[in-house]
Design a protein around this nucleic acid. Structure first.
Length: 280
DNA sequence: ACTGACTTTCCTGATT
DNA sequence: AAATCAGGAAAGTCAG
């Protein structure tokens, strides 16, 4: 069964500079995201620092937060355009936000301006905040649920990369607002409930991977299942199902061919993750 | 309670 | 021939 798989690729999405780009790729060193794993919006550093002083990491955390909290369509956001500092972010015009994030750019611009003028109290009341955004852009379509987006689009964002890519914005576990703790999206590592998130996170977490999955061609989102039984065991543990086998897991993966999350490649090759499921 | 999305389980047939 | 892969069908799970 090894090798099964799958080569999957995240299909390229023009809205992303590099759907497979990981946080590490983007931020270069771990100093950007120490202790990032279990961070929530509540304890996110970016909420305690004025936007002008945000680092690239803070900018990304903020983006993740916005996508998660306001259900923005991460697929329409060109995350590579936000690989910038807070100062640079604050200097962006609304038009530039729209260029970088399409319809979501208007939301992001609005949210940022509110943070700058009202401070973080803007986020103290979720309903109020949402209402403000809604009022602001009544004629702006609401983004699809991020999860749906990720599943349907073959791009993993960095954080999510993958499933090839789909993963993008889910990388961060953002939940600054009350009662958000259980709303897990993003990076909180291997706690994702979907198989594609599990696979993606494994691919993005060398420390958790242990050689179970290997990239064949990261640029194309092609990976290979090296230790099929170990993968099934891990997935089974995640789902608390000790009867999980690789045969069953691989069946679930094959269903992703239909939805486009995974793309089948030559059998002798690995599996390809769709861009939307790849990490940003 | 209903529904839809997603996963699990079982199975058969094809391929290596 | 055995192992592995592919995919249909149906049941199970869970969130909205």
């Amino acid at each position: 069964m090894l090798d099964s798989v799958t080569h999957s690729t995240f299909l390229p999405n023009t809205s992303f500079c590099d759907p497979l780009m990981s946080w590490t790729d983007l931020f270069g060193t771990e100093e950007y995201y120490p202790g990032f794993e279990h961070q929530t919006a509540c304890d996110s550093y970016w909420t305690s620092v004025p936007p002008e002083y945000w680092t690239k990491r803070h900018v990304w955390e903020w983006l993740q937060f916005c996508c998660d909290q306001y259900k923005l369509d991460a697929n329409s956001i060109s995350f590579c355009h936000f690989n910038i500092s807070g100062l640079q972010l604050c200097s962006m015009s609304q038009e530039e936000f729209v260029d970088a994030a399409g319809i979501c750019g208007e939301y992001l611009y609005f949210i940022l301006q509110n943070i700058r003028t009202q401070g973080y109290s803007f986020f103290n009341d979720a309903d109020e905040t949402k209402a403000s955004i809604k009022d602001y852009s009544q004629n702006v379509r609401t983004g699809r649920d991020l999860r749906d987006h990720l599943v349907q689009a073959p791009y993993f964002t960095d954080e999510e990369t993958e499933v090839q890519r789909a993963a993008d914005s889910s990388c961060l576990k953002i939940g600054s607002l009350k009662n958000q703790e259980s709303h897990n999206h993003g990076r909180s590592s291997l706690q994702s409930s979907h198989l594609w998130e599990f696979v993606r996170d494994l691919l993005l977490s060398p420390e958790e991977n242990c050689g179970i999955l290997e990239w064949e061609d990261r640029e194309q989102g092609i990976f290979r299942v090296v230790k099929s039984e170990a993968l099934a065991k891990m997935w089974g543990q995640r789902k608390k199902n000790d009867r999980m086998t690789y045969e069953k897991l691989s069946r679930a993966l094959r269903y992703y061919y239909k939805t486009g999350i995974l793309e089948r490649v030559d059998r002798r090759l690995p599996t390809v993750l769709h861009d939307s499921h790849k990490a940003i």
